[in-house]
Design a protein around this nucleic acid. Sequence first.
RNA 1: GGAGAGAUGGCAGAGUGGUCGAUUGCGGUGGUCUUGAAAACCAUUGAGGGUUAAACCUCCGGGGGUUCGAAUCCCUCUCUCUCCGCCA
Length: 426
Amino acid sequence: MLQTSYIRENRDRVIERLAVRGINAAEMIDKVIALDEKRRATQTELDSTLGEANQMAREIGDLYKQGKAQEANAAKEKAGELKQKSGALQEEMAETQNALNELLYHLPNLPHESVPTGKSDTDNEVVSEHGSKPDFGFEPLPHWELVKKYNLIDFELGAKITGAGFPVYIGKGAQLQRALINFFLNEAREAGYTEFIPPFVVNAASGFGTGQLPDKEGQMYHMQLDDLYMIPTAEVPLTNIFRDVILNENELPQKLTAYSPCFRREAGSYGKDVKGLNRLHQFDKVEIVQVVDPEKSYEVLDTMVAHAAGLLDKLGLHYRVLRLCGGDLGFTSALTYDFEVWSGGQDRWLEVSSVSNFETFQANRLKLRYRKGNEKPQLAHTLNGSALALPRIVAALLENYQTENGIAIPEVLHKYTGFESISLND
RNA sequence: GGAGAGAUGGCAGAGUGGUCGAUUGCGGUGGUCUUGAAAACCAUUGAGGGUUAAACCUCCGGGGGUUCGAAUCCCUCUCUCUCCGCCA
């Protein structure tokens, strides 16, 4: 959530930045400023009315003590009037505040200076490309055929048990999954992140804190009986650890990591992109999160990008890094780098990681602050990234490491899998 | 699921209608003393809004109510603890 004080003082810049997302926000911003002004004026009036009422109440107390009941009763009448007035003002305040919040909740974060203007993913900027496309010397299979051939994942079985998008991992397919999770977690730990196992279900306040609510309500599974949401990413419980927290300067940076299954309704998705592991309702992911000093957040973003890149390097995958354009940038993000791996069996790029700096956008909703020396607490910056999301990594590994009668496992995973290849004889 | 108790400032813990934003202790910060440190002593120490600065306003788990006035009374929700039942 953007800060009203910032909007008030930087009207033109806010409008100009939001234009990078393709949003013409001038009208909305002016409305915000007007409502904010009204809110503050009402607040001032309410404050002085309450002040008078408090004063009056004290005087009545004194009068009673002095035994002047008659005068006290007269004063009570006037106090009643003040009460009525403050009640009306309070109502007006609440209305104004609600109207203001409604607007603020739907304003996305301001894109960073380096974010390219653009409408869709075709306008994203390719920052770098690493490795090269595999040369098979035969016709490579897409992963959904490989997993069938080697009995690694059963999509139909998952559909029977639950529904489409809930695959069942079997044998070496399941082991590979677990190996990747351990590999990613260990790498994160070595990079200084503390491992957590958070709840995989969160309340509405947490969904709101990281910005999934109210903007993306329809994308989360909602358990109505208990009013809880299944997490779409570990970012939600991890970042909400810091909701309503004031950290000391020396407690920064906070570096956390967690594995979690992720649940997404993916309402509105269809077509060939959803085939196999490309898009699922339940998938596994290791997430890294940092809470940092605002002055260092872009430096930190670079280190997180380097971390994700290092994982892909070690897995020997061909990948590229993209800087998302304004139109493709997530609601809460100021700057996002996406990682895409090459899928040799599908002949296309697959997104496997997204690393973002949210600046104060989440912190403002979370009331996540830190204190520098004796200064007033100020909002911290939050960042997070996938390191990494499993299904598309698995898809790329299977496809790119396939041979005519088996699949090789990258060496770095051997100690985690306990096997070095997958073949028909397994 | 049943019965009961509780939720107060970083922590512990007073406070049952009238200067209570809140006694006190611990912790933190600054100072005195000391060669230095400890101890002792003194001062200071929640958040948000507001103001040039003050004044002033809001917040004692969340929400609502009673009252001129509520941390204190009432209703409700959430959470914690104890006992019983059930169960991994």
